[in-house]
């Protein structure tokens, strides 16, 4: 187990173990539940814990690969458009007579291809920043979705397809099960494999990884493709929940996902963060907006609260780490890529 390699905030004793960012998230998570149950008489019941997650879990699937990407010190804003494009292609091919199962596979294939294309551009032209590449592909993918479906909506899926977004196995929704499985896979991938260690390494010191013979291009491509793949998974669940799709679905998902990952304590400077943080953040943001929704707080107040929460939480982690941070060179936004020469 290469645990000794690169771990910035490795727990040394029980005190620093409990001072970790993730414990603060747990605290906030509990606080939100306490607050919500005070606020609304409709909050504290079984449904809240079993059925409610499926109202916000659809975009949460992208959180996993986005964590990888941000650990790499990179970013991907094209995910929302990837969701739209793959969802549109799935619907159109089903309507053209393709069996639904095959259409779903096609959806995942298309989204993976979208991711792969991002990855290819980033690996081949390393001086391009991930922000600009994905901003352009964001426009392109969404544009293709419009080209394909124009002003139409496509839907009319078979009955069983709806069970992805609405169905449950026993009392547990299908979506939650899928989320837990993915969380397990991605958690293992990040924390228990060489691949995961490479991610931290690349995020922490790109050059060192290059010189120690890690295939940086391959890793970049794999991560981008995983992002695409998970965007496809989101597309399936989202489409299933809506029963039909349009070229403008999932607008703005990318920023929500990035916000969750960052709230989860993953540093955009790269190389830092754990998988459990973003997962907690998904539930914090989800339950916070659900609880406030139950007392009918208006959308504009919600915007302000979530924005404030984002800044305040990052401020805390920054002040905590500021000593260590000062020793590192100032964190460039997407600057890691700049130093790379392949």
């Amino acid at each position: 187990m290469p645990e000794h390699m690169i771990q910035l905030d490795k727990p040394r004793d029980w005190k620093s173990f409990f001072l970790q960012w993730e414990w603060l998230l747990v605290l906030i998570f509990i606080l939100i539940h306490v607050m919500n149950s005070f606020l609304s008489p409709y909050y504290l019941n079984v449904n809240t814990f079993i059925r409610t997650p499926q109202t916000f879990l659809d975009k949460a699937f992208i959180v996993f690969p986005m964590t990888f990407i941000i650990i790499l010190g990179s970013i991907d804003v094209s995910v929302g458009s990837t969701v739209a494009l793959s969802s549109v292609i799935m619907a159109v091919s089903y309507n053209a007579g393709m069996p639904m199962g095959l259409a779903m596979v096609l959806c995942l294939a298309v989204s993976s291809l979208c991711g792969l294309f991002n990855g290819f551009l980033l690996a081949r032209y390393h001086e391009l920043s991930s922000a600009i590449v994905t901003i352009s592909t964001m426009t392109i993918y969404r544009g293709f979705a419009y080209v394909i479906l124009e002003d139409q909506a496509a839907g009319g899926f078979p009955g069983w397809f709806e069970s992805f977004g609405w169905g449950s196995v026993g009392p547990v929704p299908v979506m939650s099960i899928a989320f837990i499985v993915c969380a397990g896979i991605f958690g293992m991938l990040l924390h228990r494999t060489t691949f995961g260690r490479c991610l931290y390494g690349m995020g922490h010191n790109h050059k060192a990884c290059l010189y120690s013979g890690i295939n940086i291009k391959k890793i970049k491509m794999i991560v981008s493709m995983l992002t695409g793949l998970m965007a496809g998974v989101t597309a399936i669940f989202l489409t299933s929940r809506m029963g039909s799709t349009r070229p403008n679905v999932a607008t703005g998902y990318e920023l929500e996902v990035i916000a969750m990952v960052v709230l989860g304590g993953v540093s955009t400077a790269g190389g830092k963060g754990k998988m459990i943080g973003p997962i907690l953040a998904v539930f914090i943001v989800g339950y916070l907006s659900y609880g406030l929704g139950l007392i009918n707080v208006s959308a504009q107040v919600l915007l302000i609260i979530i924005g404030g929460l984002l800044i305040a939480s990052v401020l805390i982690s920054n002040i905590r780490f500021s000593r260590k941070e000062q020793k590192k060179s100032s964190p460039a936004l997407f600057g890691v890529e700049a130093d790379e020469k392949t």
Binding site: L31, M35, F38, L288, V301, I305, I316
Partner: peptide, 14 residues
């Protein structure tokens, strides 16, 4: 102080 701010942000609507 900041932790208090976060908690306040969460509790303020309450």
């Amino acid at each position: 102080v900041l932790a208090a701010v976060v908690i306040a942000a969460v509790l303020a609507p309450a």
